[in-house]
């Protein structure tokens, strides 16, 4: 199963806070059968977020969790025009990546997620995502940059 598909991409998200954005993305994952229990998964994500917010400078939020409620390693992506506060010191996050990892995920799956995380610090990758025209372009970008590298 691919890491991300078009139905896991929300390009014009109107959600106002972290919880709303995360829930919107988590529900997409659930709808795709990747998350088996939205509430349990959200609890795990929130717990991680409570340790330290996952917002990064440059308008990035990367909520994530390893959770028993995850069936497949997945990435859900949201873009917010107004931005959502994600705890970063320099302002709200406009690109939000929800990373879902199954609790007992094997090394291969985790390697893909690690590769994704590594791409996230590249400005060119972030710029391309910020300007991607549609969900298909986002999926194509992630697939090219992460999976096929």
């Amino acid at each position: 199963m691919p890491l991300i598909t078009e139905d896991l991409v929300l390009l014009d998200l109107a959600a106002k806070d972290r919880a709303e954005v995360t829930r919107a993305l988590a529900e997409r994952l659930a709808a795709a059968g990747r998350v088996t229990d939205v509430e349990a998964f959200l609890a795990d994500v929130t717990a991680r977020e409570a340790q330290m917010p996952t917002g990064l400078e440059g308008g990035i939020g990367i909520p994530h969790a390893r959770s028993a409620a995850v069936a497949e390693p997945s990435l859900a992506f949201a873009r917010s025009a107004d931005g959502v506060d994600w705890g970063a010191p320099d302002g709200p996050a406009r690109l939000i990546f929800l990373i879902a990892a199954p609790d007992g995920a094997g090394g291969e799956h985790m390697k893909i997620l690690a590769a994704l995380a590594r791409r996230l610090v590249h400005q060119s990758f972030k710029d391309a995502l910020a300007t991607a025209a549609d969900a298909a372009a986002v999926v194509k970008l992630v697939t090219e940059e992460v999976i096929d590298r």
Binding site: T54, A65, R66, M110, A117, R118, R119, V121
Partner: peptide
């Protein structure tokens, strides 16, 4: 990092 999924690798790459 706590979860070992994201920040660990982002920090390494950066």
């Amino acid at each position: 990092c706590p979860t070992g999924i994201a920040h660990t690798y982002m920090a390494a790459e950066a």
